[in-house]
Design a protein around this nucleic acid. Structure first.
Length: 551
RNA sequence: GCCCCCGUAGCUCAGCAGGAUAGAGCAACUGAUUCCUAAUCAGUAGGUCACGUGUUCGAAUCACGUCGGGGGUACCA
């Protein structure tokens, strides 16, 4: 319940009534913040979109609407018609002053809203296989997913985060075989291990093997008989490491969901998922395998879901998993998936459609690849081979704040160039520190002896300098930014917004002194500073980035 | 072959629930520090929004096509 939403809630109904009165039956009214401030504080293009329906030229229509809009309230100072027929609203100064007071009073709550209405959304992300350390794409997904969850919660959704641990099937056996080879290597003191075909070559498995020997008393000879047991132990160990790494990165999950849970007992959800396709006659047998008629549901061809050997293919437990999500009461399953999952998505979507789930339930998002660079030179990576940069190494090299901020700077679907050299640089061209520095600067001001003013009788109307009113307007954009993030399920606007807010502050700072001889000006500017600091730190916190008081 | 993402300033990218004169950072050039943190600020310059057609009063934004770049496409998970 911020002032911004109340202003929207105030304007839109009035505009809707006015539209009805001039014969527009079903007006689509969207308010936006114009890019240029000459265009007012808010604008609407209803007159443009609706002019066809009424047969009135847009400008004339806009004039009519503007004339009918009350401007004697506390909320709207004037309405003007501009350009091809935009309605531009100018809000009174006291609207922004009240907003600032609200922010300073309760900085935590600013930007919150109940637009989500408590809708239960599940965000699944990272979900890396428990076969090795987290890589850079996982790092990106972790930043994005974690930030989305925080923002959606702030906007009134009941949002949960989940990590799906792929601990079933042949992969664990493969892992077991690889670890077994490493155990053998350690015991025989050999230079190299004989990693089986298709196994995992990463050096990290030496540590895992050593840990298993140490902790579980698992020796090579004991483990040799049971590849699966070794694999399971190794997977648990690796998963634990992943969790610790994510914690370092500031990311925790509400739930770690194990694929193996889906197979429990006689009541296997995987078999259930399979059966629900069979029962709906969406399958047929061919060449000894069971095929799902995926091509009827948008896939390019039908897919095998049960092999001729009688095992399910990977899509089946995934179907079961999503049915499980639905069964837990979620209305939306947002899956952040790696760039190697396109085919997967189409299959899964087809299967969920075949079973009759609402189309909007499943919302996969491909987190695009990260091109890692160091000083402009590409760093190649391959998790399977165990070379390249892990999330742990990334944290060590560039730090959590810079890493998380950089991952959030681009659209999720864009390939991301990540230059570790640049991210680590504590200077000029690094946007992370630009934003953090603005916060630290404000904190520095607030530490000054002259900053001990009470908020009681602050008169904000003396904030009339351009830099001051610009800052007030920038603060007002914060809730709108969050709303657009929710609309797009895409967090990157937050980094742009905070960079702009920081720029506004740096400019203000360079031109005006906060603490001066005039008591009233000092008090008003101090409050402005507190508001900016509150929004900066609040915004950074949503991204899991720190807001240092000293730099 | 099929599927997905991308193509906007020299570079990295915003903008895309159609809308007003297409924006920012970096790089380049010029300038600013008696004063609350110069990790800062100001100014200059930089564009056929890949191309074509269509829809529209209006297209960077929507649709179709072409070209170019990247990724994905198992009876593995």
């Amino acid at each position: 319940m911020t002032m911004n939403e109340t202003i929207e809630e105030y304007i839109v109904p009035i505009l809707a009534d006015l539209c009805h009165s001039v014969g527009i039956s079903d007006p689509k009214i969207a308010l936006e913040i114009p890019r240029k401030k000459e265009h007012g504080d808010l604008s609407s293009n209803v007159a443009l979109t609706a002019s066809k329906q009424t047969g009135t030229p847009p400008q004339q229509l806009a004039e009519k609407l503007a004339a009918g809009f009350p401007t004697d309230s506390d909320r709207v100072e004037s309405v003007s018609v501009a350009g091809p027929g935009f309605l531009n609203f100018t809000l009174p100064g006291r609207y922004f002053h009240q907003l600032l007071k609200d922010i300073v009073t309760a900085p935590e709550g600013f930007g919150s809203s109940d637009e989500g209405g408590g809708a239960r959304w599940l965000f699944e992300f990272v979900s890396a296989n428990p076969t090795g350390p987290l890589n850079i794409v996982s790092a990106r997904a972790a930043s994005v997913g974690d930030t989305l969850v925080r923002i959606f919660r702030k906007r009134g959704f009941q949002a949960d985060s989940e990590f799906y641990v792929n601990d079933g099937g042949g992969q664990v056996r493969k892992l077991g075989a690889s670890v077994r080879a490493r155990i053998k290597q350690i015991e025989t003191g050999a230079e190299t291990a004989e990693i089986p075909e298709g196994g995992y070559h990463g050096e990290y498995l030496v540590d895992v093997a050593q840990a298993l020997i140490d902790e579980n008393g698992l020796s090579g000879s004991a483990g040799l008989e049971d590849e699966e047991h070794v694999g399971r132990s190794a997977a648990l160990k690796i998963r634990k490491n992943q969790e610790e790494t994510l914690q370092r990165f500031g990311v925790t999950f509400d739930r770690w969901f194990f694929e193996s849970e889906l197979y429990d007992e006689e009541n296997s959800q995987v078999t259930g998922a399979y059966n629900s396709l069979v029962e709906r006659s969406k399958t047929y047998e061919k060449d000894g395998a069971v095929h799902f008629k995926a091509s009827e549901f948008g896939d390019s061809e039908d897919r095998v879901i049960k092999t001729s050997k009688g095992t399910f293919t990977y899509v089946v437990p995934d179907i079961a998993y999503h049915l499980n999500k639905l069964g837990r009461g979620y209305v939306k399953a947002v899956d952040l998936l790696g760039p190697d999952h396109h085919g997967h998505i189409v299959q899964l979507r087809a299967a969920l459609a075949a079973i009759g789930l609402p189309r909007e339930f499943f919302h996969p998002i491909i987190v695009q690849q990260v091109n890692l660079k160091r000083g402009g030179v590409e760093v190649k990576m391959s998790k399977r081979a165990g070379v390249g940069i892990t999330l742990d190494e990334l944290i060590d090299e560039v730090g959590v704040d810079a890493a998380r901020f950089f991952f959030l700077m681009r659209r999720i679907t864009s390939h991301l160039d990540f230059d570790m050299e640049l991210a680590r640089r504590h200077t000029e061209d690094n946007p992370v520190y630009y934003v953090q520095y603005a916060h630290a600067r404000i904190c520095s001001i607030l530490r000054q002896p002259g900053a001990k003013e009470s908020d009681e009788d602050v008169d904000l109307s003396i904030l009339t300098e351009g830099e001051e009113t610009d800052l007030l307007r920038a603060l007002a954009r914060f809730p709108w930014t969050l709303a657009s993030i929710v609309r797009g399920i895409e967090p990157h606007p937050l980094t742009s917004y905070l960079t702009e807010l920081a720029r506004g502050f740096h400019l203000f700072y360079s031109r005006h002194r906060v603490i001066g001889d005039d008591r009233r000006t000092t008090a008003a500017r101090l409050m402005l500073c507190r508001g900016v600091a509150g929004v900066l730190s609040g915004g950074l916190r949503l991204m899991g980035v720190g807001a240092p008081e000293v730099m």
